[in-house]
Simulated assay, not measured.
Amino acid sequence: MANNEFGALLDPMPLPLETGYERLASGVLHVAVRTDMHNCTGEMLEWWFRWRCDTQKYIWWHPVDHISSTWQGEISAQTHIGSEHVVTECFSGLPAEDLVIQFRDPTEFFDGVEYAEARASGAVTGAIVGRNAHSHNPTRLADGSVLGGRLLHIARDTEWGTALRSHFYVGYDLPALGHSPNEVTEQATDRFGQALVQHAYDEFTFLSRFLPGLFLAEHRDVRLPRPPW
């Protein structure tokens, strides 16, 4: 499923849309958010998703919008890929929704060689990508793949922290299921796009405020931090 639009996220150069939302010709809603996560790294971001926050810690992540968090699918301490985050959350004032986020291998979204080169060069230092659906019991393909939207969180480390690009394609699978652009638009509204921009910016800003300290504490047995004094 790799395509040129996804592939552009591997290049640090500014994109035409870094923060905002747009309507694609298919009716799919493309939402983009850039968040500067000071003192964080891509390594920390990937670890956060492997840590698999329970409801208490999920609320730390966004004290306003997040409601509940459980996990299912393939659970491994070594990777977030294959796991599914089952959540209930609000979106910046909109009513609460149930979601399943199914984390996938980046090579489902990106050309394998280009992705490997981006990781090797430091253009990408963290990648969280997946499929999502607005339901706790989503429609799936025969292989278990969730049908719905797509999300991509691509991190790049800088001298001050991590520049995070979050891109969402709401209703991504609907055109292939026979929905017209108008029908897709009815399900993936501009109001939701506006709310998602704010929600994604807020949640990763909240996360950046405690993730560095949490990461240090959880890794002190293998990477003892230097005391600030």
Rank of each mutant, 00 (worst) to 15 (best):
V86G: 03
G73Q: 03
S83G: 05
H85W: 15
W51C: 12
M44V: 14
I81A: 06
T55M: 04
V87W: 01
G93T: 14
W71K: 00
G93M: 10
W60V: 04
D111Y: 06
D105I: 15
R52T: 08
Q56I: 07
Q78M: 10
I67W: 02
L45I: 02
W51D: 10
E108W: 07
F109C: 04
D65Y: 01
C53D: 06
V64F: 05
A77D: 14
A116V: 08
R104N: 09
V87Y: 05
I67G: 00
T107G: 07
V86A: 01
Q78I: 10
P106G: 10
V113W: 10
Q72K: 05
I75L: 04
M44D: 11
V113N: 10
S92M: 08
T88W: 05
A118L: 00
P95R: 08
G93I: 11
S92N: 14
L99V: 06
Y115D: 01
W61G: 05
G112A: 13
I81N: 03
A118Q: 00
C90K: 15
G93P: 08
G93R: 15
E108I: 05
Q72M: 05
D54Q: 08
S69V: 07
E89W: 07
Y115H: 05
C90Q: 12
I75N: 00
T107C: 10
E97V: 15
E97W: 14
A118W: 00
R50P: 04
P95A: 08
E114D: 13
S92R: 07
V86Y: 01
S92A: 14
A77I: 15
A77N: 13
E117I: 09
V64Y: 07
D65F: 01
S83K: 01
E117H: 14
A96K: 10
H80F: 12
E89Y: 07
E97C: 12
E117R: 15
D65Q: 02
V86D: 03
W48C: 09
F91M: 06
